[in-house]
Design a protein around this nucleic acid. Structure first.
Lengths: 114, 114
DNA sequence: CTAACATGAGTCATATATAAACCATTTCAT
DNA sequence: ATGAAATGGTTTATATATGACTCATGTTAG
């Protein structure tokens, strides 16, 4: 079964995606690309691109990133190129390997019995 | 009708999301948060969080960003805070207002007829 | 000015993502 | 060591996102 979902997003998430949407649209127009063209290149429908540029939170993250990449909007801090992003991935893997595998909660020592 | 879709993503997109996933997982474990906890806070299921941490490109962008926000992975360069991100949104709006509204293709003047 | 084109917005059928539940395995605290 | 807890990997029913159309409006090049 599936609980009927009316998801609530934090203000920060909403605005982050709004910014991303605006950046995408700007970049697209600056490069004189039509919605149809970008959609084709990204392998999505024009309606989908419309939703992305309207900051629809429900779009697939892959589609959004793909479009961003196509119009040249960089996604993370230092990840401008494939090379740098790969380095960062490796760093993150190293880091992950040093961390514990699971996140056990600190046991509440119960002394609230009086 | 709907064409059955086997979407292809660029290498860059894949790796960008892979990096994001790794950063999220690292951050979660560092903070000793279980998958269940983070899922609850984000208002998603544990299975969803698992896919996010496995860099599944088909997750909703809103869910991914929400999780990133919760564990403290920043999405843009300088947009650590709501205030800075809002400034950037405004800047992007200004910029957008100066651009043409539609992206007309430059007419190919055909002189390739000899 | 105006025709061609880009975009916005809505509908609909259906492919697909999602939440829930379950079990097996791994990991960690004690 | 051992048990409690966390995680991985399924499966399934259903809500939902998506692509394809269509029409209306806006915009721009010429």
């Amino acid at each position: 079964m599936r609980k009927s979902v009316k998801r609530a997003y934090s203000r920060y998430t909403e605005e982050a995606i709004c910014l991303l949407a605006n950046l995408i649209r700007s970049a697209r127009i600056e490069q004189k690309l039509t919605t149809q063209e970008v959609a084709d290149r990204a392998g999505i429908s024009r309606s989908m691109l419309q939703r992305i540029e309207k900051a629809d939170l429900r779009c697939q993250v892959g589609a959004v990133f793909e479009v961003a990449t196509i119009v040249g909007v960089s996604l993370f801090d230092a990840s401008q190129s494939l090379t740098t992003i790969r380095k960062e991935i490796n760093r993150s893997k190293e880091k992950l390997s040093l961390l514990p595998k699971t996140a056990h909660k600190a046991h509440k020592v119960v002394d609230d019995d009086f």
